[in-house]
């Protein structure tokens, strides 16, 4: 099954992976009040990496990721839990949404919020756990 080398697949994957990652970030950011969000964005991104794994094998995917997927999941879970805490600074119950409106030069005002932090956490957790499962399956196959 894991035979890296199909020319069409590997060429297309090189094209598709950046597009999928870009699309996943787009899904993540629009998720607050439109369809999208951390979970589905994480699935899109991990689908991109899994496609890469089909095309180039486990070792190449691990080299592309550079860090262990379990660390990605850990970082995501940490972010998600920490997003509960900003509310405490303002005296609200945990997980209450907090919004900040800093303005940046050239871009103008942007909206940041603790739900966004939570969503990024979910995004990373999904990528990390999906890749952990798929890589362990693929390693068993090899």
């Amino acid at each position: 099954m894991m035979q890296p080398g199909s020319l069409i697949l590997s060429t297309m994957t090189r094209l598709l992976l950046p597009l999928q990652l870009l699309f996943s970030v787009f899904m993540l950011l629009r998720g607050h009040d439109l369809p999208g969000g951390g979970f589905i964005a994480g699935l899109v991104a991990s689908a991109g990496f899994i496609l890469y794994l089909f095309a180039f094998g486990v070792a190449a995917t691990q080299a592309l990721l550079r860090i262990d997927p379990r660390e990605i999941a850990g970082a995501g879970l940490t972010l998600a839990v920490l997003s509960a805490l900003p509310a405490l600074l303002y005296g609200d119950p945990v997980f209450t949404a907090q919004w900040w409106h800093p303005s940046l030069p050239l871009i103008g005002e942007i909206k940041l919020s603790s739900p966004l932090l939570f969503d990024i956490g979910v995004y990373l957790t999904v990528i990390g756990s999906m890749l952990t499962i798929v890589i362990s399956l693929a390693e068993a196959e090899e």
């Binding site: 379990r70 660390e71 839990v81 509960a84 945990v94």
Partner: peptide, 21 residues
């Protein structure tokens, strides 16, 4: 906060131990 802490604490510790795997 007392009622959330026993849940948040192990979640955070689990995440940190995953980071330190």
């Amino acid at each position: 906060l007392a009622v959330a802490l026993p849940i948040l604490l192990p979640l955070l510790l689990g995440a940190l131990s995953l980071l330190a795997h």
